[in-house]
Design a protein around this nucleic acid. Structure first.
Lengths: 107, 107
DNA sequence: ATTTAATATTGCAATATTACGATAATAATA
DNA sequence: TATTATTATCGTAATATTGCAATATTAAAT
């Protein structure tokens, strides 16, 4: 017990749930929104902006990276990253499909 | 430590994250998809369909109910419920806004 | 080669989630 | 009222998430 029984669900169901999980924390929503507000890539100021400790921000960024939503060079000084457009649109479509394919003719 | 610092984020950020959290489990995706496939309301057969124990299904349904995505009468024999259209469209719009308002002109 | 600034990793504690067996509550029906 | 079928709640164990201090790594700049 304790762990999700992912194997009894389809790949699509697991993938959508996985993507939703990344959005399921306000810090990660805030991070994505902040990056998007910038003109170009984002460097440095995320910790001051969000208000969580640096290791915590780093972990959240890692969660976002793991589903491919961030691109950039991740090593060294002046790390700069931004949202991966292709992956972003892919997830947007996945959520949109999910919401659109639901049948609402009931009750 | 351990609990999310929700107070440092906006209401909108917390609400979207909360909605995403409900979608962040394949069982709940499966439940929503299954209900939507039915002609009308869904009664009874969810446990057999999903493949999790009845208390577990009940808990997942409760999570979905808590953000207002299900309506129906929840007591007694032949409990019938279905997706709340108004709330569904509200969340669809919230996700759509989030994905659309992101600025992708970078890198 | 050292220093420095930025990011990542580790270790740990607190909290949350997931799952299910056992049991309780509910409401229709006999 | 007693039975029955259905759904909810309780209790508990396993696992996952969140957050941060301490530390390590990285790479540019001195």
């Amino acid at each position: 017990m304790g762990s999700s029984k992912t194997h009894i669900f389809s790949i699509q169901q697991n993938e959508l749930a996985q993507a939703a999980k990344v959005l399921a924390h306000p810090a990660r929503i805030a991070i994505l929104e902040y990056i998007s507000k910038q003109e170009g890539c984002i460097c440095n100021d995320l910790v001051d902006e969000i208000g969580l400790a640096q290791p915590t921000i780093s972990q959240h960024l890692n969660e976002i990276k793991k589903i491919g939503l961030l691109k950039g060079t991740y090593e060294g000084k002046n790390l700069c990253y931004c949202i991966d457009q292709e992956r972003w649109l892919e997830l947007q479509q996945a959520f949109n499909n999910f919401f659109s394919n639901i049948n609402l003719n009931c009750c």
